[in-house]
């Protein structure tokens, strides 16, 4: 079984739209939406949820007021400025800011009165769903929650597990923008990374950083230039750069308002149109299949 991960560095280059098309074109696969921060693939695939489970990725501290003697030790040791005492010295009240708390537990271990509660918290949900284009594993990180990396790892694991269970050969992962925690969790150990870029200076800058990341983790990487005709010179520059550093450009997809229209119709691009852009996406998919081997 193989894992293909689609990432971009810069946001909004068209990852999810392409993954939606791949979901129509690929056979025998499981889809995994690992952009748990802003998951959008479900909007196109309209999943029927088979199983939903809570996700618990971190603990948070809470002060038990009755036990607290207001010694202030917790405020001293917290490096994240998440604990603050208010009120006059003789009647001080300490509270943990749940958004600032990083769940390190130092206050819990240090409190001489054992007046701090330190419990696992539910900070998201994950789902196994059925869609018209195959099974989908997706998730929703709670608002203002951390540890998206853990949730990404969980979604990937479950998608692989599902593929094995059903005897499917491929997992297609929709990644998130950036190069940090959730992206690292979505690329490590994947068989192929497709980086979707656009012909802008920002796109090029972010492409360079994110391909350094995949190289750092030893992930075979190919590139697709989306909306290539918005600035053909810039596309040529990116292709030249890719050649120089030994990255294969496996696809060029034009700018077409049909992409937005398909999204509004809750269809993948190749479901929505048979135009030239659809041919470019099909060609891109054939190249990816070849690269996956």
């Amino acid at each position: 079984m193989k894992e293909l991960v689609v990432i971009s560095g810069k946001g909004g280059t068209g990852k999810t739209s392409l993954v939606a098309s791949f979901s129509t074109l690929a056979e025998r696969k499981v889809l995994a939406d690992c952009d748990v921060d802003a998951a959008d693939l479900w909007l196109i695939l309209e999943p029927r949820i088979l199983r939903r489970k809570p996700f618990s990725g971190s603990k948070k501290a809470e002060i038990i007021e009755e036990k607290c003697t207001a010694c202030g030790r917790c405020e001293e040791v917290c490096r994240f400025e998440a604990i603050r005492g208010t009120g006059p010295p003789e009647d001080r009240v300490y509270r943990v800011d749940p958004i600032g708390c990083e769940g390190c537990g130092v206050c819990f271990y240090i409190c001489p009165e054992k007046a701090i509660d330190f419990q696992e918290r539910i900070n998201g949900e994950w789902f196994i769903s059925e869609t018209r284009n195959g099974p989908l594993v997706h998730a929703k990180l709670g608002i203002a929650e951390e540890n998206s990396g853990k949730l990404v790892t969980l979604v990937r694991k479950e998608a692989k597990h599902l593929a094995e269970e059903r005897g499917l050969d491929l997992v297609i992962i929709d990644g998130s923008p950036g190069i940090g925690c959730p992206v690292i969790a979505s690329v490590t150990g994947a068989d192929l990374a497709l980086v979707v870029t656009e012909p802008t200076l920002s796109g090029q800058h972010d492409l360079e950083r994110v391909t350094k990341l995949t190289a750092h983790f030893g992930i075979p990487t190919v590139v697709c230039i989306n909306k290539y005709d918005l600035n053909p010179q810039m596309s040529a520059v990116i292709e030249g750069w890719a050649r120089e550093v030994g990255l294969k450009v496996v696809g060029r997809v034009r700018y077409d308002p049909a992409v937005t229209k398909a999204q509004i119709m809750r269809a993948s691009l190749v479901e929505y149109t048979g135009g030239k852009i659809a041919e470019e996406v099909r060609s891109l998919w054939r190249h990816i299949v070849y690269e996956l081997g």
Partner: peptide, 14 residues
């Protein structure tokens, strides 16, 4: 700020 809604975004807008 970076895109998204998780910890780096919260730190940025705080």
């Amino acid at each position: 700020a970076p895109p998204g809604t998780s910890c780096p975004v919260i730190e940025s807008v705080k």
